[in-house]
Design a protein around this nucleic acid. Structure first.
Lengths: 142, 142
DNA sequence: TATGCAGATGCGAACCATTTGCAAGTAAAA
DNA sequence: TTTTACTTGCAAATGGTTCGCATCTGCATA
């Protein structure tokens, strides 16, 4: 029986480490940082090095397999599998939970830039606030 | 003749360094990084230390005088004078020029979050692409 | 105007995320 | 199977930011 594996992009050598990283991102439902990925791969008894994780993510991002994001506070960068339908997130400012946003504010938006002729290629949107649990906790309603 | 100076917020001790930093941000028309601020203050023959710049910016941000932003690539954080009418920017992916956006896509947007009850407090929006000059250069039209 | 002190800065070192260089290892073309 | 170019392991460097502590300085008060 053949292993079920998403199509592997041409021109990317298939190594153990890369397989692990991609599989992890495939099943993750929120973006992960390089060190989270590193920890998870290692917890599955696979040998990997943090710098390798960065190199893999960088390559994958260049190849369009994953998208790199950074969150407002400027901590570690986050990486998510590119599912070709771009996605935005809301981040809980208290516990850092990341919640998906199902629509995109740019769908029906006509940007007015101060510099004419700026060629817009893409955008990033991020919302922040309190997730369900933190909101409850902090408002004291138990 | 009295020096023209924006109202100084109560409870913030008025030091030479803070005055320089605020004045700089007042006249800047694009967000600046801590080290850009550091360089500019020093080029005006004023003594300051980089860690002091960070502390000042942090304080100003906490006080609501400036807003801190980070740009997609995760480089240095940027700081802009808070003009109380929030602002978004477009960043040139080639030369890093920052161009202001005059409208906000969130004005008329109803977010649909995967987690009900996420309490949205704010948002960040960033656009990227090519600025006028880089677009011209790169498309080869001279 | 002189004085006391909480708060600010100078300075260096620590810290964290990320990158880089090089030798050794390995996927896949020949 | 051999060859070779691409990857990884590993360690050390780098860049942005924060921290600790001694010194200094606005500014409230005497």
């Amino acid at each position: 029986m053949k292993e079920t594996q998403a199509a592997w992009p041409a021109g990317i050598r298939k190594t153990k480490q890369r397989r692990f990283v991609l599989a992890l991102l495939d099943k993750a439902d929120a973006p992960l940082s390089a060190s989270e990925i590193f920890d998870r791969v290692k917890s599955e008894d696979a040998a990997i090095w943090l710098s390798t994780v960065y190199r893999i993510l960088d390559r994958f991002a260049g190849e369009g397999l994953v998208v790199k994001t950074t969150v407002a506070d400027g901590g570690a960068a986050l990486y998510a599998r590119n599912r070709n339908r771009h996605r935005h997130y809301a981040v809980c400012v208290n516990c850092r939970r990341i919640v998906g946003l199902e629509n995109c504010p740019m769908e029906s938006f006509e940007p007015k830039l101060t510099e004419r002729d700026f060629r817009v290629l893409g955008h990033r949107v991020e919302m922040y606030g309190y997730c369900r649990d933190c909101d409850k906790k902090l408002s004291g309603a138990y």
